[in-house]
């Protein structure tokens, strides 16, 4: 009994250290999305030199919805991956967040345009509805217009191959 009392604080300490140590491996900046398995919030955004982008059009096939901006430093880094995704036949749609149309145009002229459709969210209201905290953020939307996955930060080629592409293929196979 006495030995147990002696060991108890050590067990408590190890438990606490393990718990806090686990906390250190978690990124507090990565917030869970509220939208997972819920329908895409409604939006109807004006396009850039093209048709408008509305949430109602996200039906029939799984798509990616990428929130980006010309002022975003990580977006050019992600852009080649988006181009590759589009080339592989997976539709990528974009929302330019709090961006000037001219700046968005210049960005697309310089880095290419992988987007099947684009919407301008100049007020930032749609981004708030999507729970966006920074650019880039990408949502995986299924055939029924529900958000199934959210990627915070630029998509890496490894992440596309290993995580998102299999998910997109699985969503395609869904009824």
């Amino acid at each position: 009994m006495k030995r147990l009392l002696f060991i108890l604080p050590i067990i408590a300490f190890v438990g606490l250290a393990g718990f806090l140590g686990y906390g250190l491996t978690q990124d507090p900046k990565e917030l869970p999305s509220q939208l997972i398995d819920r329908p895409l919030p409604e939006f109807a955004l004006p396009g850039i030199d093209g048709p408008d982008l509305a949430s109602a059009s996200f039906r029939g096939e799984p798509r990616l919805l990428n929130v980006w901006a010309s002022w975003c430093a990580a977006c050019p880094q992600e852009h080649p991956v988006l181009e590759r995704i589009a080339q592989e036949g997976f539709p990528v749609y974009g929302i330019a967040w709090k961006d000037k149309p001219d700046d968005s145009r210049a960005f697309l002229a310089r880095f290419g345009n992988p987007y099947s459709g684009l919407g301008m969210d100049q007020s930032g209201r749609t981004a708030i509805d999507l729970g966006v905290t920074g650019a880039p953020e990408t949502f995986v939307v299924d055939k029924k217009g529900r958000v199934r996955f959210k990627i915070v930060g630029p998509i890496s080629p490894e992440q596309w191959e290993g995580e998102i592409k299999p998910l997109m293929q699985q969503l395609r196979a869904e009824a």
Partner: peptide
């Protein structure tokens, strides 16, 4: 990679 994230 998150360090490269942007804010308006």
């Amino acid at each position: 990679p998150l360090w490269g994230r942007c804010r308006p």
